[in-house]
Design a protein around this nucleic acid. Structure first.
Ligand SMILES: [Zn+2]
Ligand SMILES: [Zn+2]
Ligand SMILES: [Zn+2]
Ligand SMILES: [Zn+2]
Lengths: 165, 165
DNA sequence: AAATATATGTTGCACTGCAACAAAAAGAGC
DNA sequence: GCTCTTTTTGTTGCAGTGCAACATATATTT
């Protein structure tokens, strides 16, 4: 009984996260090259800050984690601009129910509907892409005479590692 | 082919909105009586302000719409406390992707998953309750080892009235 | 009436998100 | 190289969100 590709990963506590982050950066670089987009140092540092954890981070938290002396830290607007760029390129998601951001560690097409699983205990966020959910939602909204764009789906709960551990 | 009850209404521009609001207030009153909860004047005014429109309102917008002279207007914290009460009793929803609030004009059980349809043109918000969506989401999150609570589902798009009109 | 619980007012602050303009850096054409 | 143009980043400032902590008022209970 193999897992389907449609249901995806909640990050396991013991996973190889260095690899996880390195891969994501590599993917971001190649994607930006392919699109002739510029992954500038600031944008890269914001992405790296987000990739350091699987928890969603707010703007100030990102600033703190970008390191450097307090005086050298970028202003919030700089972070938001970088986040805008990263989101446009599908490298970062916004978690609406938290007013926070998280790096995408998948390679789904931008505009793809994604289900976010937010663990209330450990704070980690998993992504589950499901074609069936997308279809159900689209047909339901069309039944209401609605022309849908990308849905926002966020589910709070308890992840398996927190429940069992 | 009749419409199923599972797919619900986007508020039509010409609907009897006085009735719409009056009914909701009446429902709120009876519900609060039944639960021995106190629908105080402030809580009622906040609910009425939200019921005046089917667009989600932020805290400051609610304050403005509550009327009275500027000096007499309640502080934001007062609004948030009223909203907390109203949300706990299922009378108001928070639209996460907008940091705003909307009165519930349905009578679904609290904890019921609701799909919000956000029209990007007219700003109105419809609610669509769908058991099938709830089931699909639950099974998908369980497949990821996740114990879900109430999901947040918000779909931006264009409503039928804006598209056809 | 007094004690208790609930609700509202007051003050203050941390954080979100972005507009408007200024300066710097990168890229393109000569 | 050097100028022109576009893109990116810095600076200042502001409207809005959301709530903590404490004071006061109002309702409920005994
Ligand atoms: Zn990881
Ligand atoms: Zn967890
Ligand atoms: Zn109405
Ligand atoms: Zn519309």
């Amino acid at each position: 009984m193999k897992k389907t590709a449609s249901v995806a990963a909640f990050p396991a506590p013991g996973h190889d996260h260095d690899r996880c982050a390195t891969d994501a950066i590599a993917h971001a670089e190649s994607l930006c090259v392919a699109r002739a987009q510029r992954l500038t140092p600031i944008r890269r540092r914001v992405l790296e800050a987000l990739l350091a954890t699987h928890k969603p981070l707010g703007a100030y938290e990102i600033i703190e984690r970008m390191g450097g002396k307090a005086a050298e830290r970028p202003a919030p607007i700089t972070i938001y601009r970088a986040l805008e760029f990263l989101r446009e390129n599908g490298l970062v998601h916004r978690i609406e129910s938290r007013n926070a951001f998280i790096a995408c560690i998948h390679k789904h097409a931008s505009g793809d509907p994604v289900v976010f699983l937010l663990c209330e205990r450990c704070g980690a966020v998993g992504e589950a892409a499901s074609a069936s959910i997308a279809e159900t939602l689209k047909s339901a909204s069309r039944a209401a005479g609605f022309t849908p764009k990308t849905p926002v789906i966020e589910i709070a709960g308890i992840c398996s590692h927190c429940r069992e551990g």
